[in-house]
Every structure is written in structure tokens, then in C-alpha cells.
């Protein structure tokens, strides 16, 4: 099954609007896919004035894409929180083996004698 295949389609109003406007928007670099990519790239670099303007114009007129910046920010926050909690005992059961602990303790002891 292709990724995203079981996700629901966008609302009918969007599809009708896109059927009419899509070729023009694509030619202007204002299609939803471009906006999607720009929203992601904005998290790694400063967009050029032209890109920034294109994105602002698109987000202001596309109801479906207007929540993308908040979604990307929310995802960044969620992933950071998840990874920062990864070493806390309540989220995973992995622990260092007794053998490894002994080996590390021996190593530290030998270093402290040096």
C-alpha cells in the first residue's frame, strides 16, 4: 500500500478550487507542494525575500496549508521532548549489563590511579 493511501481526501471545496487554480499556482511557484517544502526549509535556513513572499501569499489564501507552519513547529517540539525523555527510566527498559558496568568501573578505577 502506498504511503498515505488510507488518509481521507481534502474537502470538496479545496479540490474544486485547485482544479481551476492549480496550473496557474504551479507556474507561479505557489502550489501546495512548494509551500510544504518551503515551510520545512524555513526551519533550517532563512528564506529569501522572494520565497518568503511566495509562502506568505500561499498561506494567506490556502485554508489547508495555513496550519502547516504550526504543525512543523509542533512536530519539532514533540520530537525534542521525546528524545530528551529517552534516557529517563520510565520510558524504556534498556539498561547497561552488569558485565559492562564492571568493565567500566574497572576502567575508571585504573584511570583514577594514573
Amino acid at each position: 500500500m502506498k504511503p498515505g493511501q488510507h488518509l481521507p481526501p481534502p474537502p470538496l471545496t479545496y479540490r474544486v478550487k485547485q482544479a481551476i487554480m492549480c496550473p496557474i499556482l504551479k507556474a507561479l511557484g505557489l502550489c501546495c507542494r512548494s509551500a510544504f517544502n518551503l515551510c520545512s526549509e524555513k526551519m533550517d535556513r532563512e528564506l529569501t525575500k522572494r520565497e518568503s513572499l511566495r509562502l506568505r501569499v500561499h498561506l494567506s489564501m490556502c485554508g489547508l496549508c495555513s496550519s502547516l507552519p504550526a504543525q512543523f513547529e509542533g512536530m519539532r517540539k514533540l520530537i525534542k521532548t521525546t528524545c530528551e525523555h529517552e534516557h529517563e527510566g520510565d520510558c524504556c527498559s534498556e539498561s547497561l549489563s552488569e558485565e559492562a558496568k564492571e568493565r567500566i568501573a574497572r576502567h575508571l578505577k585504573s584511570r583514577s590511579k594514573e
Binding site: P3, G4, L7, P9, P10, Q18, C32, F36, L64, S67
Partner: peptide, 13 residues
Amino acid sequence: SLFTSKGAWKVDP
């Protein structure tokens, strides 16, 4: 698979 060839959403984002 999320976008049409013209760059419009195929799914609700």
C-alpha cells in the same frame, strides 16, 4: 503520493 502532479494535496494534510 501525497500530492498530485500539479502540486495539490491528494489527502487532508
